[in-house]
Design a binder for these strands. Sequence first.
DNA 1: AACCCGTGGCA
DNA 2: TTGCCAAGGGT
Length: 358
Amino acid sequence: MRDDVPASPAPERCRRLQALLVDWFDAGQRGLPWRRTSDPYRIWLSEVMLQQTQVERVIDYYERFLLQFPTIEALAAASLDDVLKLWEGLGYYSRARNLLAAARIICERHGGRFPSDSEAARALPGVGEYTSGAVLSIAYGVPLPALDANAVRVFARLFGVKGDPARGETRRRLREIARATVPDDRPGDFNQAVMELGATVCIAGRPDCLVCPVVETCAARAAGLETEIPPRRRSSTSAVTEVAAVARDGDCVLLMQRPHDSYWPGLWVFPSADFDGPNPGEAVEALLHQAGLEAEAGHTLLELSYGIMDRRVELTVLCTEVGGEPTAERWRWVALAEIEDLAMPSPHRTIAQALPGG
DNA sequence: AACCCGTGGCA
DNA sequence: TTGCCAAGGGT
């Protein structure tokens, strides 16, 4: 055996794990909307929404999305603006753009049906190793692993894999474990059982080993390392100050659409910018001048703080008198009644709801 | 490989 | 309050 090929767990141990976890899943799985369907489209949609997003946050978005787009064909015919509006508040908005692009590809090249072939699925935008394995195992019974953050934690603890899962060698070991443990029989239920265990019992903080169906087989528990595996991620946040302008012209307000190569791609925001000086009014006026507008900053409408990625933002929102038409692309005067139809990120939706008459 | 991409709940 | 975390993918 070559050194760079991780050892597989023993077949007998894999079978034991499969039986215990699937029985546990059968006995007590949560009733979730995407578990009441076998439609590959619906399972795909749920997996995309669940990327880096907890189950409880997804449920309402999932059901609203399917009311508007019940089939892949309906989704493929939609506009990006409509899809983004349904995604508003869920985060990671490139998922919505990729979902729409993939739906159009599926209609053009796959007869409107999510492909059951792994390579074809992986070729779709927004469908990576995890999502392809999850959809194919759950919707089509293909014995592929679905190694999400839950499964990484569960396998690392069960098999005593101590390294940082972000590192290549540890990741290869965990992928080999996931590949070896997924059964030919009911692979989708096994994958969901592993993830369900990680989400409800074998959680990141303090795992509830007393109710774990596989605690007898757990290497981390046997060594007293269940809270040390996997190692904590380190993170740092930076503090940032921003200004935003609420520029009114009668029943209209000035908005700008975010570019696709940064955060909040394609979403609408009040004109805003970082600033680090003592005078937020000057910063707002400079921002609007760059867009070809005359501007005079007025009073503070509200101040709010929000987090985005690793940034902690203190945002000052200024009412601003504006003259002229914006020359910059992506800037628009929008009627107050139309704002609710545009997709806005959470902090800017908060601003919109604070507008008098808005 | 390492970094970018959201949001809100929780301790 | 601050940091951690979540059914990842693209580059």
